[in-house]
Amino acid sequence: MKASNESVLTQPLQLPCGVVLKNRIAKSAMSDSLGNGRGAPTDAQIRLYERWAEGGVALSIIGEVQGTPHYAEKPGNLVLNAHSEPEVFKALARAGSINNTQLWLQLGHAGALADAPFSNPKGPSALDLPGLKCGALSVSEIQALPEEFARTAVLAKQFGFGGVEIHAAHGFLLSQFLSPLFNKRTDAYGGRLENRMRLMLEIIDNVRHAVGPDFPVGIKLNATDQLEGGLRQDEALAVVDALDSTGIDLIDISGGTYFPGAPSSSDRSGSGPYFLDFAERARAKTDKPLMVTGGFKTLQQVKAAIKEGKADLVGLARALVVDPGLPKKWKMGGTPEPQFPRFDNPPEGGVTAWYTMQITQFANGETALSSSDLSDAIIAYEERDQQRRGIWRKHFGG
């Protein structure tokens, strides 16, 4: 669906459930890593999402919120279940929803990528690879997941969040099930694509039934794993086709994985959005609104994607880390472009560490980092995670 020429960024977008997003810019999910190590939001995290809401985004998504503490991606993840403290989650929901902003929780399960120092990683199949070792989930463990996701979604609704996004991208659990490279099962959850997407569709059905027809439910999907033998674009298009008949309100298209040594979409060079070509092909498979995340660096790129009908909503991540007020500036008619840092030969994971610590800086109202702070940022990032792993083990056991 092409947006009109006039006010292309500020046009509202109505989702199938009836909820209206005030404009076409979203803060896509990132691991802000600001949980307290016990699965709860911190004051800094509350300020962070309040600042993004003040900056003018229509939708803001909190990355990797876990239903249990057993398969978290990082010790800064949030855990939302019956043991969580309602008031601090409600405070986060209130702060991130000001300025008519939709604040959603991304429902996650890291599976094989669960942080091994404080968990027991399990995926669709057992793996023993350099830097990655995990067991296989049993059928009963798999069959318990739809209800687990649904319980978390219900709590999100009860605590005041605007919606949820199911994470089926970036190499985490549902992405692992979709990928023939990591899903070697021979039962009803493996083999042909129909089986590999079974768990994802069961989770969608359970979540939608639990939250009712009027609460937004999105999904994040890989256009490609960017790995030889992984999910291919033609298979991803078939997944989009299957999603068209579900209760999903928004398909958030991204790509790549966080498997050790795998290329990261967000760290690669290039001046343009990464997945618009796939989104254009996906448009023929679904009438669901499409959000495209990855590689948007300029106002012109964002406007073109929406104007040409390739995306209904554009997801920004690192652009909103370096300038959280960017949407408001664009709306006011200025054309400032975010100034991204440049790094010379950063180590694997180093750029992610820098951006994560930059998030911490502006959440705390502190001075922005420079690219020369990369080494210090990596050290601070690793030290903080190590400290919170100890807190996590003490609090949750294991």
Rank of each mutant, 00 (worst) to 15 (best):
P180H: 08
A305N: 00
P263M: 04
L181P: 10
S271V: 01
R232A: 13
F275I: 02
R185A: 09
T257I: 00
V302D: 03
V207R: 05
A279V: 06
G256C: 05
G230Q: 01
I251D: 08
R281M: 06
L250T: 14
A279K: 05
Y274R: 03
D234R: 11
P213H: 04
D205T: 09
I248A: 08
L221A: 12
G294F: 00
T257P: 13
R283S: 09
A317K: 04
D225S: 14
E228M: 14
A262M: 03
D225Y: 13
D287Y: 05
K310V: 07
L181I: 11
Q226S: 11
L231Y: 02
S271A: 09
F275D: 01
L243Y: 11
Y189D: 07
G270W: 00
Q233T: 05
I219F: 09
R185D: 07
G255W: 12
T246E: 10
G270M: 00
A282W: 11
D277A: 10
N195W: 09
P273N: 14
S265H: 07
S179M: 02
K310S: 15
G247Y: 06
V211T: 07
G255N: 00
G247T: 02
S266V: 13
L237F: 10
A188S: 15
K285W: 09
A238D: 11
I219R: 04
D277T: 10
R208L: 12
G218S: 03
I203M: 09
I251E: 08
K285T: 15
L201D: 00
A262V: 05
M200R: 08
M291V: 01
V211S: 08
N195S: 07
L290M: 07
D187G: 12
M200K: 03
R198Y: 03
R185M: 12
L243A: 15
T286W: 11
S271L: 07
D267A: 14
V314S: 11
D214I: 14
L250W: 13
G212W: 06
A319N: 00
L250K: 02
L221W: 05
V217F: 02
L227N: 01
L237N: 06
P213M: 10
D252V: 10
L313P: 08
P263L: 04
K184D: 03
D277H: 10
Y274P: 01
K288N: 12
M291C: 12
V240A: 05
L237R: 14
V302N: 08
K303M: 07
I251A: 10
V211F: 12
Q301N: 11
L237A: 11
T246L: 02
K285D: 15
G270R: 00
L316G: 04
Q226P: 02
L276P: 11
A188M: 13
L243N: 14
A282S: 10
